[in-house]
């Protein structure tokens, strides 16, 4: 059983998160400030930390710095600060994720699961590197089996969606416009059928991303095109 530490000076929020996570079968420890959190981490085996930023005594960023001195466990920052530079500051300090308040409980749980899978099972994933395996972060396509997995969980895609995703993954990091995607996947010139591509891509995002509006893998660069993020 995984132990998750929830750190938030707002006890009600910490309690709510505890309820959600308990339902998913996790053991939850709670701390209401940074120092308390560091103590718990020191004395307990913790697999994941959910860390508020604005806290008394020691704030989230300082606490994170302390944690990172000894631990590599996943840390999800949780904050009402939604500015870009707040997020960047958190991620730069060593957070694995950044969720803004008010958050969607389902999204939080999905992210917790994702990070735990990656962290706990990372060492055991001695999967054979087959030639047909395309991969970025925890998104994988096994072209032999035509199987798509995210965090080890299989995703069902239509044939068209699969081809589009495969094309993008094969060229991960590169940006393709709708027309380029169409021409490459269908191997023919597009005749005003581009809208369909945009719909397909939305569908793919909805399937592979925890929050399709803030995608981790399939990014939309508005007015330019789409790309699969190259995550090693």
């Amino acid at each position: 059983m995984y132990q998750i530490l929830v750190v938030d000076d707002d006890r009600e929020i910490a309690n709510a998160i505890e309820i959600y996570l308990s339902r998913e079968g996790y053991k939850v420890l709670k701390a209401y400030d940074g120092e308390e959190a560091l103590n718990i981490i020191k004395n307990n085996e913790i697999h994941l930390v959910i860390l508020d930023v604005m806290m008394p005594k020691k704030d989230g960023i300082e606490t994170l710095e302390e944690i990172r001195k000894t631990k590599t466990i996943p840390v999800i920052m949780l904050s009402a600060k939604s500015e870009d530079y707040d997020k960047i500051a958190g991620l730069d300090t060593g957070a694995d994720d950044y969720i803004t308040k008010p958050f969607n409980p389902l999204e939080l749980i999905a992210r917790v699961k994702s990070h735990l899978r990656r962290y706990v099972e990372f060492g055991n994933l001695d999967k054979k590197e087959s030639k047909s395996l395309l991969k970025t972060g925890e998104l994988e396509i096994d072209d032999e089996k035509k199987k798509v997995t995210v965090d080890g969980k299989e995703i069902k895609l239509t044939a068209t969606e699969y081809h589009i995703l495969k094309f993008l993954l094969e060229n991960k990091g590169k940006v393709f416009s709708i027309t380029q995607i169409y021409e490459n996947v269908w191997n023919e010139e597009s005749y005003g059928a581009e809208n369909i591509i945009a719909v397909h891509i939305r569908h793919i995002r909805e399937k592979i991303e925890i929050n399709p509006k803030e995608p981790k893998y399939l990014k939309v660069i508005w007015g330019i095109g789409y790309k699969i993020e190259d995550i090693t």
Binding site: I178, V199, R202, G223
Partner: peptide, 18 residues
């Protein structure tokens, strides 16, 4: 600021709102 193709943008967003 960068070069943006409005046409692409419209198509993308139309896809999102379909």
């Amino acid at each position: 600021m960068e070069d943006i193709n409005i046409k692409e943008l419209i198509q993308q967003i139309t896809g999102e709102f379909e």
